[in-house]
Design a protein around this nucleic acid. Sequence first.
DNA 1: GATAGGCAGGTTGTATACAAGTTGACTGAC
DNA 2: GTCAGTCAACTTGTATACAACCTGCCTATC
Lengths: 243, 243
Amino acid sequence: MTRSTGQKATAGKPRRQSSMADRVYEALKDDIFEFRLIPGDKFSEGDVATRLSASRTPVREALYRLQREGHMDVLFRSGWQVKPLDFQMVEELYDLRITLERAAMHKICSHSTPPPILRQLNAIWHPDHPSERAIGSTARALDESFHCELVAAASNREMTRIHQEVTDRLRIIRRLDFTRADRVDATYNEHAEILDAISNNQPGAAAEKLTAHIRTSQAAVREITMEKIREAARAHQQNKTTS
Amino acid sequence: MTRSTGQKATAGKPRRQSSMADRVYEALKDDIFEFRLIPGDKFSEGDVATRLSASRTPVREALYRLQREGHMDVLFRSGWQVKPLDFQMVEELYDLRITLERAAMHKICSHSTPPPILRQLNAIWHPDHPSERAIGSTARALDESFHCELVAAASNREMTRIHQEVTDRLRIIRRLDFTRADRVDATYNEHAEILDAISNNQPGAAAEKLTAHIRTSQAAVREITMEKIREAARAHQQNKTTS
DNA sequence: GATAGGCAGGTTGTATACAAGTTGACTGAC
DNA sequence: GTCAGTCAACTTGTATACAACCTGCCTATC
């Protein structure tokens, strides 16, 4: 049976073997998300190729992919640059995210049967005891998963894909939202309320609660970001002068 | 003055000179949109390179770009394939389009001052005499422009970009919507009503009219598509056997 | 001292060579 | 006639060489 090696890349790791281009892509994306490459940094394809022991071809492929996803800028014959943080763009991405997730609420409630994922989400965000609540990076991952799963439950793959893209681009910002305990608590309460509204088939209420939830998170993150960026830039600068 | 060669690519043609990769990209996209390459067609990078007198490198770049945009599939070490028309996907894209354009209606009406583009759109879709109405491919282009301009008027670049991407992917389908005069007439009336609702600051009404308008167009196109595809496949097959 | 011009180094864009893997047809045995 | 195995041609993935062009420094001139 000569079945193809499988297109789907959802669960497990069905990748035939991560190609060089994929590895470079993941490495650069990590560098950006972990602030090892900070917005505004410039480098050439050759630099990356040397650093990651690859040739320029897969590096170029990875960089163009990152460019399409909004993480990099290409300066014509003058190297590449990590896209400077554009706060206007972040606001717009949040708006887009709200639009998509609101639409998902209405779609979910318009289905005849509630999606099975609701049970799992309720188990996570309606814990029997507060002690079961997650914290730190786990909470962040769970939060991201909550919103993505909700959109996915609306059963529109294109909408899910775009929402995933927005999520990826906002991750670098949203990761700052779970550094304070009160924010984690608020997230649990708000997620629970949203799930309740869906269970009661109140798409309007769910959409409103969701919007307020995202706006709150957005505001909380907004103020932390600037400070973090300044801090990273400072450490980065110091690193440069000492090396 | 050593100013950079300019990043913005809005007006005129500021492109330094279309690169080979761009040329290949445009050529392939045209081939797909004009049904010279029909869904399901397979070919290799080398084929394209020879046909367009380029090397494989820019061809690969163009193909990966088309893949990312949903027009092509890459078969692992087995060539490339024009993405088969996925009707489920088309439905989902229409839903996504409606979601984005509805959100744009509300955003536009929430602005304190109406966007200037409204005057131009009114001039086009509220002609003083029916004789000023466009027909055929001009009507199609105007229709596409109408919807894109409305979304752009909401002043969210990310939303505009995604909507543009959806528009690009649906174009191959939507172009079939202006082959009948009654459809053109309906489009004029419906666009006019939508503009009226916006002018009267009734975002809800505008959104409802817009949704109905798109759904009508969607239904009209749906039935034509199948026949067109069959026809193209027939001509294509005949072409193959005679050559 | 300031400015214009040229030159060297570096960068991306493109072409081509090579490696690894898939496909499909052909051949042989049963 | 059918099926399994082998092999050759073809395909993508990667590395590298070359070309066109941009940038910034350095020099010479005013």
